[in-house]
Structure formats: C-alpha cells, structure tokens
C-alpha cells in the first residue's frame, strides 16, 4: 500500500496571495496537491500518495501558533498520513518557523516530518533534530532543484530506506550511530594520516564538540549564614548501594541524608568504575569531603552543611545525561535555598 503524504504550504506557495494574505487562517484541501506539493508528489514515485495540502498564512502561524498547531494536529489525526512535507521554505524566516512548527506537530504525532530550507533559515534549528530537512538554496528561484531533493527524501523514508546527510543532502539530525565498516580502525587512522601527509583530502570521523558558556553566579555575601551543599560525580553511595547506581554511564542520580554524619568514612563507598576505588573505600571523604565541611560548620565558618548530598557516576556518562542531572539537582538545591555548592569530580 502506498504511504500517505500530506503537504504544508504558506499563503504564497499555496496560491492564496502575497504578504497581504499572510494572516490567512489555515485550511485543508483534501485531495488537492497545490504548487510545490504537486511537483514533490509527482517526483516521489508510486509508493507515495499525496492526500492533501494544508495552507496557512505565515503571520497567522506566528501570531496564533497554538491554534495553527492544533489545526495541523487535527488534520493529521483525521487523515492518518505517514509523512508530512512542509515547504520548501528556502531562506524565508517566518515560513521556516511555520514549517518547523508543522514538522514538530508531525513528529509529536509519530509521523515522518520532511522539509526543505536554506542553511541560515532560523526555522532550521527548531526542527533539525527530528526532521529530515533538505538543504536548499536561499531563494525560491531554485525551486526546481529543491523539489527532487525533497521528493527523494519522501520516497526513501517512505520505503524505510537508509538516508544519510551526505548522500541525500539533508541537514544532519545530530544522531551519531555506531556502525560496522569495512576497514578496521587502525587502517582508517593510517589512511587518514597518509592523506594529511600528502596534503590530500580527508574527512574526520569526529568533529570536535563545542561547549556553551554560562555566566558565573554571584558570590555568597555572608558565609557564616550560608547553606553549602555537597555534590559529586564520584559515585559515592551508602554501603550496599541501595539505589543501585551504575558504575559507569549513569542513567540516574541519587541523594542521601547526611545530616547525622560527621564524616563519610566507614558508611559510604564508591561504585564509580573509572578509577582505583581502594583509597576512596578506605575513606570516602577523600572524594567528597564531608568531614572538613562539617568542621567548618561547627567552627561557624559556614552556616550549615545542606542535609542532602547528591551523587552520580561521571565516567562514560553522556553529557546529555549530566546536563539533565544538573538541571534536576540544581532545581532542588534552588528550591531548598542552598547558597553554594561544592562539586567534586574524579
């Protein structure tokens, strides 16, 4: 059975009108492939069947986003398409944003979102991770080139075929999949070095990541009344690891009440798989210094050691997970009125 494809266009490409019609309320034209939809539908082969076109004014989408999304969601629910194709939007910002919105509705509905945009279209970042967005030129004059690219994606995705950013000219979603390849790693490394030595082209398999920045938080004004929390990625847990924290690649964080302890020695140990645990297991304060902080509390140098300590395992833990853990732990600490944090890493 052919896969059902539904199209999304703005007022201009939908043939309603130009900027003066940008407030056009969304409508669905069942059985009608309008403008670019017709071209993509024709080029995507017999196994894909266009079933209709949604047309919505760009300003309408921008100002009534919830309403526009609900409209698209309703059409998807009623028509049960397998794929939604939005655009191409080229470098039109408002249209790109609307296409990204339509793709996101499709993604939430569990169907395949396809679009086409220019690399600088601001809508791209809102849908790139979950949609297949063909890389188009920046102006609609290049429609003839955009149509086959999008049709190719529709055709292949409908058939469940593999697509790659290089072969199929779409913006990488950012999923790094582990695959088995012909040559072993050592051979690939030697080839890569040879290419460099001979000034030939080569493609790195791992572009260096970039890290975002955050402004430093303001200093604590009065330490003697400050509550300080202890957090660690050193895998410190109470003896017996009651919540079964993983030894590597943590999927969770845990918190433990340390209000009745003056030190961790004897009652806590590490499950962290990335370092020699012997020294920490003799005295966990070597990784999370409760004893010293408690003394400062008794000496009045700080107001209080926060009652709970937070722990996870840092080794091999995906950055995405550690971001999530940080957000969750930070939220709790903020709500608890904690003034400052010592975070130890191994």
């Amino acid at each position: 059975m052919a896969k059902k494809v539904i199209y999304y266009l703005n007022q201009f490409f939908g043939g309603i009108g130009g900027e003066d019609m940008a407030d056009f309320e969304p409508e669905y034209r069942a059985g009608e492939m309008v403008g670019p939809a017709m071209g993509i539908n024709a080029a995507s082969g017999d196994d894909c069947e266009g079933i209709g076109t949604i047309i919505c004014g760009d300003n309408f989408f921008g100002t009534h986003e919830e309403e526009a999304r609900a409209f698209i969601a309703k059409v998807i629910e009623e028509e049960q398409p397998d794929i939604l194709v939005a655009g191409p939007a080229f470098n039109a910002g408002r249209y790109g944003f609307a296409c990204a919105g339509a793709c996101s509705v499709a993604h939430e509905a569990g169907i395949i979102p396809v679009s086409g945009m220019y690399e600088e279209n601001p809508g791209l970042e809102h849908c790139q991770a979950f949609s297949w967005v063909a890389a188009t030129a920046n102006a609609a004059a290049q429609m003839r080139k955009a149509i086959p690219l999008m049709a190719n994606l529709v055709k292949k995705l409908a058939a469940g075929e593999e697509v790659t950013p290089e072969e199929d000219s779409y913006f990488a979603q950012g999923r790094r999949e582990t695959v088995l390849v012909e040559d072993r790693g050592s051979k690939r490394a030697v080839d890569m070095l040879l290419a460099r030595l001979n000034d030939e082209e080569f493609v790195t398999e791992l572009p260096m990541p970039s890290f975002d920045e955050v402004d430093p938080a303001p200093a604590i004004q009065d330490l003697s009344h400050a509550t300080i929390a202890l957090v660690t990625s050193g895998g410190i847990v109470p003896n017996g690891n009651p919540d079964r924290l993983q030894s590597a690649s943590a999927q969770q964080w845990n918190k433990y009440d340390i209000s009745s302890y003056d030190e961790l020695k004897g009652d806590f140990y590490t499950v962290h798989g990335g370092f020699d645990p012997v020294y920490c297991n003799e005295d966990a304060d070597r990784v999370l210094p409760l004893d010293a902080l408690r003394e400062m509390e008794k000496e009045g140098k700080i107001g209080k050691v926060y009652d709970l300590m937070y722990t996870t395992t840092g080794t091999g833990t995906a950055v995405a997970n550690s971001i999530k853990f940080g957000e969750e732990i930070g939220k709790e600490l903020k709500e608890a009125g904690v003034d400052g944090v010592l975070l130890t890493s191994t």
Binding site: A217, E327, K334, G340, L342
Partner: peptide, 25 residues
Amino acid sequence: MVKEIERYGIPIVHMATITTISSSV
C-alpha cells in the same frame, strides 16, 4: 552538571583534578 547548577544562580566550585577538562566544559 556544574554549568546547569550555576544557571540557577547558585555559585558552585568544581573541585577537580583535571582542571583542563573543567574549564573546557
């Protein structure tokens, strides 16, 4: 993790051995 906690406006000290990583992240 450090950065996310700092985003809440809570000052945080990263006590780490490989400080090159701390500053990279």
